[in-house]
């Protein structure tokens, strides 16, 4: 992930692979490893954590339960797998039946009954036959702040060279 704005963070890059996070600082040309704990921390002061950016493949980290449905949506509860080492106790999802996109995810932690954070996925577009939420909003229900993540353009099925996600590549433009 390459930050381009605000200007104060322009050029800073992050690479997240499994539990490893590396950051590239353009001022020094140096790549630094962050502690695995950094995954649970806010990304560049936003309401997203680095961990939240990994939730594109939920079945790797969670076990499903309590599937319910109505005319337009599935409702699902997800419990973290014992080895997933996540910050959350539980997730509840509201999934669009047509696209299978979770339109709303509530994140619970510390045994609380009210969600700690809520993620909303909006502006669903079909790109290369894949339903894609172009806007993601995360609400911090404790502080009332929110951050949004918007996709301008996205390409699927592109060829990725071996070694692309080598941290050494962060140093190159």
């Amino acid at each position: 992930m390459n930050f381009i704005s605000p200007k104060i963070v322009n050029g800073i890059k992050f690479l997240l692979v499994g539990n490893n996070i590396w950051v590239y600082f353009p001022e020094t040309g140096r790549v630094r490893r962050l502690t695995s704990r950094a995954k649970k921390q806010k990304m560049m002061g936003s309401d997203f954590t680095y961990e939240d950016m990994e939730f594109y493949n939920l079945k790797e980290k969670f076990l499903p339960s309590d599937l319910k449905e109505d005319k337009n949506y599935y409702y699902l509860k997800l419990i973290p797998k014992s080895n997933s080492n996540l910050s959350y106790d539980k997730l509840t999802l509201k999934i669009d039946k047509e696209t299978f996109i979770p339109l709303k995810i509530d994140f619970y932690k510390n045994g609380n009954n009210s969600p700690y954070k809520t993620l909303l996925q909006q502006n669903i577009k079909i790109v290369d036959d894949i339903a894609t939420p172009m806007k993601t909003i995360i609400l911090d229900n404790e502080t009332g702040s929110k951050s949004s993540f918007e996709i301008d353009t996205i390409n699927y099925n592109i060829k990725i060279e071996p070694g692309t996600f080598n941290p050494s590549n962060l140093q190159e433009n």
């Binding site: 001022e27 020094t28 071996p162 070694g163 080598n166 140093q171």
Partner: peptide, 19 residues
């Protein structure tokens, strides 16, 4: 900041996380 160094760098990024 530190000033850059006048240099020629050659880097080979191997596919197996070595460079």
């Amino acid at each position: 900041e530190l000033d850059g160094v006048n240099s020629v760098k050659l880097k080979i990024n191997f596919p197996f996380d070595l460079s």
